[in-house]
């Protein structure tokens, strides 16, 4: 079994994150927050600015998930429309605008991948995801963050990385992952749990994972 216990953030990582935050990301975050605030006032120019800033990541994510340019364009359009509608619920002290957009894009992409799911239930899931999102990476510089995520995911055991990517990018359920990989359902659930715990440890260094014999 895995037991999590409190640990300490590496001083080096903290210094890097704080330095990046001091010079660039805070300014960017504030500007994003201001744009979101203007969005609440139904300022279409603010949406245009947010689009200019984040559309490439949104389109890249949508394209990787739905693997069709026309479908990805629809996903991005739907996502920014959702951002417009949901702006009143955005709390800048809880999550970055960038994470919000990515969460919305992924939800809308899963809508397309799971056409059998009712739109209403997916809307409810998105609302819960956005409300529960607490993005502690707001202070990190974008390039630092991307690099760290790459390294952390690459550092996962192959089986864990596989289930994580099937769930995240293809929107597969645990049962579907089990069928696709041939691994028993219980094994898939265990790998999913371990993958996120290892990622959390690698990314945030706020907890230490200790393997304990059952």
């Amino acid at each position: 079994m895995i037991r999590l216990r409190p640990g300490s953030v590496s001083p080096k990582r903290m210094a890097m994150v704080q330095a990046a935050g001091d010079v660039a990301e805070d300014e960017l975050r504030d500007t994003d927050a201001q744009l979101m605030w203007r969005l609440r006032s139904r300022d279409e120019d603010a949406l245009g600015e947010l689009y200019d800033r984040h559309a490439a990541l949104a389109f890249g994510l949508a394209l990787r998930m739905v693997r069709d340019r026309a479908a990805a364009e629809e996903v991005v359009q739907d996502a920014f429309l959702t951002l417009w509608r949901q702006a009143a619920n955005y709390l800048p002290d809880r999550a970055s605008c960038r994470s919000w957009i990515c969460t919305i894009v992924r939800s809308r992409a899963i809508d397309r991948l799971r056409r059998s799911a009712s739109k209403e239930s997916r809307d409810g899931q998105l609302a819960e995801d956005l409300a529960g999102l607490c993005d502690t990476w707001q202070l990190a510089d974008e390039s630092l963050r991307a690099q760290a995520v790459h390294q952390a995911v690459e550092g996962l055991p192959r089986e864990q990385r596989q289930v994580l990517e099937l769930a995240y990018f293809l929107g597969l359920s645990q049962t579907e992952i089990s069928e696709r990989t041939g691994a028993p359902l219980g094994t898939v659930k265990g790998r999913t749990r371990l993958a996120l715990q290892h990622l959390r440890t690698a990314l945030f260094s706020a907890t230490q994972v200790e393997e304990v014999e059952p």
Partner: peptide
């Protein structure tokens, strides 16, 4: 959820077609 949120950082940004901006607005 905060871990899941940063998974998108693995993605390589891809510029969308220019006309998409107009469609969104």
């Amino acid at each position: 959820r905060s871990v899941v949120a940063v998974m998108a950082e693995q993605v390589t940004p891809v510029p969308p077609p220019p006309e998409l901006r107009r469609r969104v607005l």
